[in-house]
Amino acid sequence: SERRFGFLKEQQNTFFDPPLPAEKAEAIRKIGFGTNNKIFLEFEEPFWEPDCQLIQVVWEDTSPLQDTAPSMQDAWFKKLIGFLVLPPFGSVHVLCGFIAGLESEFMETLSDEEVLLSLTQVLRRVTGNPQLPAPKSVLRSCWHSAPYTRGSYSYVAVGSTGDDIDLLAQPLPVDDSSTQLQILFAGEATHRTFYSTTHGALLSGWREADRLIGLWDLQSQQPRPRL
Rank of each mutant, 00 (worst) to 15 (best):
F43W: 14
R207Q: 06
Y155V: 01
A25G: 08
D176I: 13
L65A: 14
P225L: 07
P135N: 00
L172H: 02
A209C: 09
S196W: 02
Q170L: 10
P21V: 00
T14S: 06
D51P: 00
Q131G: 11
I28D: 03
G205E: 04
E26C: 02
A69G: 09
S1M: 15
N36R: 13
G187I: 14
E105M: 13
E44G: 07
I165L: 00
A189D: 05
T198R: 04
F89K: 15
T120H: 11
A134R: 14
I39C: 12
P135V: 05
L132G: 01
R211T: 03
D51W: 01
L84P: 12
S118V: 10
L80D: 00
D61S: 12
A201C: 12
E2W: 10
D51Y: 01
L123C: 06
I28P: 01
H93E: 04
R29H: 10
S104M: 13
S204N: 09
T149D: 04
A201H: 05
V156P: 15
I213E: 06
P87K: 07
E103M: 15
P46Y: 04
T68R: 02
Q180H: 11
E60H: 02
P223I: 10
I81G: 11
S104A: 15
E42S: 09
W59H: 13
T120L: 00
W143N: 11
R207W: 01
L215E: 03
L215R: 13
P130F: 05
S63I: 12
S137P: 13
Q73E: 13
A209R: 09
F106V: 15
W48Q: 05
S118K: 10
E45P: 00
L212H: 04
R207C: 06
D163I: 05
L117D: 07
L54A: 07
A27D: 02
K30G: 03
L123Y: 08
D51V: 02
Y153C: 14
E114P: 11
L41C: 01
P21Q: 05
D175G: 03
K24N: 03
L184M: 03
Q56P: 07
G82A: 01
N36Q: 13
L218K: 10
I81K: 12
E208P: 09
L168D: 03
H191Q: 06
D74H: 01
I99S: 00
F47W: 04
P88F: 00
L168Y: 07
T193S: 05
W59R: 08
L117G: 03
H144P: 11
P223N: 09
N13S: 14
L84F: 15
H191R: 09
S178C: 07
A201K: 10
T161R: 04
W143T: 08
D164I: 09
V126F: 14
S204I: 10
F83E: 01
N129H: 13
F47M: 02
D17E: 10
L203G: 11
S137M: 15
P133S: 00
F47C: 05
A146Q: 14
P87S: 07
L95A: 08
G97D: 05
V92R: 15
I213T: 08
L215H: 12
D164Q: 08
R211K: 04
V138I: 11
